[in-house]
Design a protein around this nucleic acid. Sequence first.
DNA 1: CGGTTGCGGACAAGTTCTGTCCTCGATTTG
DNA 2: CAAATCGAGGACAGAACTTGTCCGCAACCG
Lengths: 328, 328
Amino acid sequence: MLETSARLLRLLSLFQAQRYWSGADLAERLEVTARTLRRDVDKLRSLGYPVNSASGTAGGYQLAAGATLPPLLLDDEEAVAVAVGLRTAASGTVSGIAEASVRALTKMQQVLPERLRRRVTALHASIEPLAYTGPVVDAEVLALIAGACRDCEKLRFRYQARDGAASHREVEPHRLVHLGRRWYLAAWDLERNNWRTFRLDRIQARPAAGQRFTPRAAPDGDFAAYVARSVSTAGYEYQAVVLFHAPAEKLAERLPAAAGKIDAVDEHTCLLRTGGTSLDMVSMYLAWTGLEFEVRDPPELVERLRVLADRFRRAAGGNNFRGNRGLE
Amino acid sequence: MLETSARLLRLLSLFQAQRYWSGADLAERLEVTARTLRRDVDKLRSLGYPVNSASGTAGGYQLAAGATLPPLLLDDEEAVAVAVGLRTAASGTVSGIAEASVRALTKMQQVLPERLRRRVTALHASIEPLAYTGPVVDAEVLALIAGACRDCEKLRFRYQARDGAASHREVEPHRLVHLGRRWYLAAWDLERNNWRTFRLDRIQARPAAGQRFTPRAAPDGDFAAYVARSVSTAGYEYQAVVLFHAPAEKLAERLPAAAGKIDAVDEHTCLLRTGGTSLDMVSMYLAWTGLEFEVRDPPELVERLRVLADRFRRAAGGNNFRGNRGLE
DNA sequence: CGGTTGCGGACAAGTTCTGTCCTCGATTTG
DNA sequence: CAAATCGAGGACAGAACTTGTCCGCAACCG
């Protein structure tokens, strides 16, 4: 019965909007008798969504955490918030959840009402993360490609190779792989008749989805390994080794755990191994600590710090402490 | 019929896991005849979730975007991704979606299976944002307080006042307000018998939820206005005005839109008005641009840049370009 | 202890659901 | 163009489910 199913969804929705409900309130909201409500609650329970209940004057119902997450019933704003959050998590440098974020995002993209999609795009554009200056993958493109992989839709896009040459590609996308800080697409290139990997940040503009195709077996049975092999020679990132004149604990509390690996040298010094997609980024990490340090490696970072030091000094120097705020 | 309702949810779930389905496949998955499947699809439609369908050999069904977001059926990993994404969005400095993120997060917290909750906490801890050094509000605390507001549960917590004095509070929480870059709680203080606002980042440890209470009318009928009045004298942030020796467009493309306001002075210079919760943060924004600049205001920023310049120089200076990588 | 609130059995009338059978129409493919 | 494939939906009958009503019971609070 449609009525019944709709009511169960509505009941879930009510429970998610507010924790405690009295039976009478719920029954009224759902426009059924209290008896039917009790039966509905039982239905939720037998669907695996536990509902606590209590008798007495302070009694009522309350949806509890069960073995699996119940269907989430989000209002417009919440849906936008979830989508924006996922985009950030997916396109960011973030660790183990990137793949899952993309999957969830793909789920949403396909059922997100148009008006909300616009709001998501607008909002996300306004909050680009500062912390990452490397090439950024557009979350929308990411979700689009993930969807094409999942649903076996061909893709056409322009691609800029490492040497800067742009070419047009038509591929059967098979798998997205998050490696290091980048996203790669493992796909069967229809023109070259072979497997290829593509760096997502080198895909220009929005890919166009095409007809559906039947998936092929992965090269050597493992996409992730294939991509890893393909890009292993790339190694673009900057690795840095920095000596800090501070105890390891002190450094640890000033850097996020993901920032790098800290090894104590002695009680007063420690060594940080970190990395980033740009020297500026590494510099910022270092400045952030507020601690004294010495760069061990790479030399380019030393040079970079010199440049920044000069720039800061010039910026500071061209200004008197009081007065001379002519533009105020 | 429970079977029927469960099947509808399952159907939604299938549609979210994969875009295209043939009628036969769906019918098999759901263990019903094709006829019943068609009826189920019709049910989804009349619930407001449009399903496209196509005849012919390449035919099949496909859930489309409708007027509202259908219930989201997430697997474990996706649920974790969503929760982590929301936490970041909620506790970050992010703009208009903070409130909605907190609401969505609150919804999830209450129905998220225990094992997933642990994973969320662990993951979130490992990806602390670098970009923001100000006092950070724990997303878990945020969601907890939001839930208490929503569900009218009293709260007890230790609070550190501006002057550093810690006190114990018992309050009836009414509203969370996101103002500037901070979260505030508007609550009725049960000991002082009056309205108070609390900065969330000054609440120590995890608040304990207590009995339920009946909500009171907002002071002057508007919580947001009340909080704004209460904290208007605080104004903690640093505002900075910086002159860049570069065209406005060039600066614009190197800074995220939210970073500040850019005004062109002439063809070769422009003025950036920006702000941050720490001088280091502002410095980083500036360094990020890779452009030459002069600080107009505030003087403290000039001083800060000097310190950073010196530190960078020392870090760079104590190192020869080749050799002396003794610790490698 | 009394009032309130949730629990669930029983029952009967009404509604819905499901599978089966069948005819159409749209679409792709050879 | 014809054949094959696949979705649409009417009709039907029996089974299954839903709902409101009525009722006694148990738990909880003050």
